[in-house]
Design a protein around this nucleic acid. Structure first.
Lengths: 333, 333
DNA sequence: TTTAGCACTCTTGTTATCTGACTGCTAACG
DNA sequence: CGTTAGCAGTCAGATAACAAGAGTGCTAAA
């Protein structure tokens, strides 16, 4: 589709623009980059790239700026994903080797490390336990009418939840519940504790319905629940010239501050390993000038959370993707 | 110190400035407020108020702006704390009556409600359990080397923590631990589980030191721990003209984004019910143009967390204090 | 096909000017 | 003696005119 020279020019423009945030001119390119062609030739190619919608022009006599289509082409065809330094690798290793008590802390560490290295805002949401299997499930009576359920999954996730009753629960009953649930559920997939499973348990377990039922409901909720949004480096946007304008900064903060929106953003992009969504591609207009890169932190097939990077469309995709790929590799050790 | 007319003028200037964020002029005051004096007289008084440092003047021919000392005088002497509408009361009631499973959720709800009603950014940190007494303490074995301790306090706080061991723990041992800890600690104040208590337990409990010791350490940490910072309404700053400038917005976001700083801010102001810190009064230069109002959410003598409101020095102190006072009353029901 | 050269365009920064909103001061007033 | 009308003086902010500079598109030659 694009000849080699045009590809090189497009790549140079995008990389230059990512660095400087200024429209890129033909003269600049021919001087700074070793393309061995004159600015006039570059101008001709730029005109064609603009005609083909890979580039935009803020006004008649200005340099060129990559368009959404341009970025997409760059990400799909030209992106190098080994753009990572020794120091960065070491830093990631260092951070991820920290001792953590709960697996969710690892997601937090990964998120903050990502923000530190890329200088973009990063966000994360804890994983649901749905892809995990139950390894152990324990019930603890707190007071007389409050029961706490602690679920340990084979992925190492620990989910606690609290169930309140209207009547007193005896230690005897707790022992029964403990036994029944473990006998029936240990080793089973959590994905199955839903309606049909509930019926199964209720019928199989042959234990007082008014106790079993609220427990199952609450556990179900705890499994699906991933409400804790983790945000790191919100103030990083002030390092970037596109957010010097009041409107863009405001818009960005609005997106970040809307918890429901952040949750949805992190929960899209199911299939792929790393999901990149550039400006207009995003389904929310609020994000039309922003790009979002998300990936699931999957360790040994178990989902541990979703992490994302959000920044201007002029994002250093190469750096971000390189760092994420390395991090994913390290997380799996 | 100030005669009545000067007080009225100062109050009018502050309230006008809080509303408009524009320097207040003498002509404006004599027209809009029913002071029954001419603008010339107001000008004379304003000059004296400025000389006494209650007011500042951005430049020679501009109106007046309250100084830090002015706001302080207003807060101490002129502030009305019943500046709350029926609707606001109802809204607070409605929000606080929601069923919550954990007491900490109540702090979150209070925080977000506060931000919604005042239109300022609000922040909160969960309470340490230090002022509470132990009501129940349970240990749960998760896997072979992971022990979870769940502590229930008389204030209704539930603190969980995880202890990892290098050797396997038997169910037998867990039963022992359960018994020992409950026998020794139930009803005791959590403030006492520190070094001397540790020695006491170790000597009294006469149980394997290599098991007891890490448990006590970890529990101690869990009691003191209040790391979860809760932030609501960060984007609210964009509603306020003082943050239209890049620098002020950036500074604000930097403060908010620095978790350590936020923690410290919320942990100052011990004694009073409601602690107000205006601009310069604050010990951090980053906050010199900001005001902070904090209060501890104390229910029946037990600390449940600290909540704060942060905004420009031109904050609607009257409204914020009124709402907080009402909220505190409701929280205690 | 590539390139040098040049006219044309448009943004950005600078300076000058004008307008309007205030204040401070003076002198008159009750 | 406190209060007020009147007026000169000050300064921020808006507007316009202008100059400089960066870049493009096009033409014609290599």
């Amino acid at each position: 589709m694009l000849d080699n020279r045009k590809k090189r020019i497009l790549q140079a423009i995008i990389e230059e623009y990512i660095q400087t945030a200024e429209p890129v001119s033909s003269g600049m390119l021919s001087k700074k980059y070793d393309l061995n062609i004159s600015s006039a030739t570059i101008r001709n190619d730029m005109a064609e790239l603009e005609y083909a919608n890979f580039l935009d022009k803020p006004h008649t006599s200005s340099g060129r700026v990559p368009s959404g289509k341009g970025y997409r082409y760059y990400v799909n065809e030209l992106l190098k994903d080994n753009n990572i330094t020794k120091q960065e690798m070491q830093y990631i290793k260092l951070k991820l080797e920290q001792k953590v008590n709960e697996i969710e802390d690892l997601t937090k560490i990964a998120t903050s490390t990502l923000s530190e290295l890329t200088h973009y805002t990063s966000l994360a949401i804890g994983g649901t336990a749905i892809s995990h299997n139950i390894e152990d499930i324990k019930f603890v009576l707190l007071g007389n009418r409050v029961l706490m359920a602690v679920i340990l999954t084979d992925g190492g996730l620990i989910k606690e939840t609290i169930i309140k009753f209207n009547a007193d629960i005896t230690e005897e009953q707790v022992r029964n519940i403990n036994q029944i649930f473990n006998a029936n559920l240990r080793g089973k997939s959590l994905a199955k504790i839903d309606k049909p499973m509930e019926e199964y348990i209720v019928s199989e377990m042959s234990y007082e319905l008014q106790i079993i039922k609220p427990i199952i409901e609450q556990i179900n909720e705890a499994i699906l629940q991933n409400d804790d949004i983790y945000l790191e480096g919100t103030n990083r946007i002030f390092e970037m010239p596109e957010f010097k304008s009041y409107e863009t900064a405001r818009n960005f903060l609005n997106v970040i501050d809307t918890k429901g929106l952040v949750k949805e953003l992190l929960n899209t992009g199911q299939g792929e390993e790393i999901h990149i969504s550039i400006g207009d591609e995003n389904q929310y207009i609020e994000l039309k000038n922003l790009s979002l890169i998300t990936f699931k932190n999957i360790v040994e097939g178990k989902e541990m959370g979703t992490i994302g990077i959000i920044g201007p469309t002029r994002m250093d995709y190469s750096k971000v993707v390189s760092i994420i790929k390395y991090m994913l590799k390290e997380l799996n050790d």
